[in-house]
Design a binder for these strands. Structure first.
Lengths: 125, 125, 125, 125
DNA sequence: GTGGTCTAGACCACC
DNA sequence: GTGGTCTAGACCACG
């Protein structure tokens, strides 16, 4: 788990996204305790301060909450988690569509390409 | 045209993308002369150094070429431009699909959302 | 009664203030016995250590006293309680005025706002 | 300007508030450039990282904006600044009233005290 | 020059 | 034990 941060994006944001993904995929349950900042830091091979930033950001977007002296927990508000799932989905779709349209592609073209890929995937699997 | 670069992405990359889009959409024709670095800098309200980077990058990806003393021109190689169009499309689709899958969504779900949006757009227009 | 301590202020101070308020409002009478530390801890859902600090602090400001083997009691010195009431009032007023002035508001402005609120409240009630 | 941070509140928040006050009082004008993080750090005698946090927070509450490579500026949105003024006023008033009421004082009592202080101040000045 | 990120390591208050 | 703050100093991309 060390040295895997290649993208130009800041490590702390990559970690935020990774955790969000894990939550959305259900690998982390509502209310579940995240590792302590020190443990998490060791686990992913970064400085505790960086994890601090990650947890702060998760709190800011109300996806986790920290209880003093106890640790940081995935929010137990399941509605918020469904919301998160929708937000992530929507933001990706919106960004994708806007990119695509700005390049002058029509939605039909794109749907055709996507469906082709789907067919391909069926054979590959 | 000033102060509109808010994203965390470097301004010069935002400009590269914008120019690629304009080329792909046909707003800039093959072989067309781009504004001088100085003019472009004034036009978009950034430092000339930034435009310098933009043109260098466009050259690196063989989408534009600089002729000394004459200026910078969109490549006149139309094959390259078709290629660019396909590359951009493919990279966006690939990135989108990988994002979506990482979050545990299936392609079917996504297609459904995309089709919903399409329907919506018909009403909005 | 769990997880309601969100402010950045220490939980034990929040509890001290809450108890002072209850005393000043007369919800707790002079000489009245407070719940045992253990009971109080269960009641408000915090660690007994935290309640220990709360009672110690109440003792320090001579608002409660602990009798070994008997428990902790609101002071029966009614003069002290009137004093407490005045102290709290004064400290809030002083802090408020100093905040307001630092921001460059005049007392007149503030009084106007306060009186508006009062009028509003009459309608809301 | 060194060693003046006494309160139990974090330095970075004290600085955020100080800057907000200066903006609300008009000591800092809309659009005005703040000192660079390094300069400000020297000026107030703290580490640049601490100032970084201050500026980030000011940006988060849309009271300042940073332009890459240029510096951090008070927002030039004057509407936002009026809003800020009102927000600060309102938050102090609300907190004050809620404190006061929780202790069982009536608004009338408080207004009387405030007006007394005002009269006093007239003599003191 | 500017801000942004990261590390290393310290100290603190709180639970 | 936990998270929160702060320092010192480094490196980077950007304008």
């Amino acid at each position: 788990m060390v040295g895997e941060f290649t993208s130009s994006q800041p490590i702390y944001l990559q970690l935020v996204q990774r955790l969000c993904r894990q939550i959305v995929r259900g690998e982390l349950s509502p209310g579940e305790k995240l590792p302590s900042m020190r443990d998490m830091a060791v686990k992913v091979g970064v400085n505790p301060n960086t994890i601090q930033r990650v947890y702060t950001e998760l709190e800011r977007i109300t996806v986790a909450e920290t209880r003093r002296g106890q640790g940081t927990f995935v929010t137990s508000d399941e509605g918020r988690l469904r919301e998160l799932r929708d937000e992530l989905m929507a933001s990706h779709v919106t960004a994708f569509l806007s990119n695509i349209r700005e390049m002058g592609f029509t939605l039909e073209e794109v749907l055709r390409v996507l469906q082709d890929r789907q067919t391909l995937d069926l054979f590959e699997q």
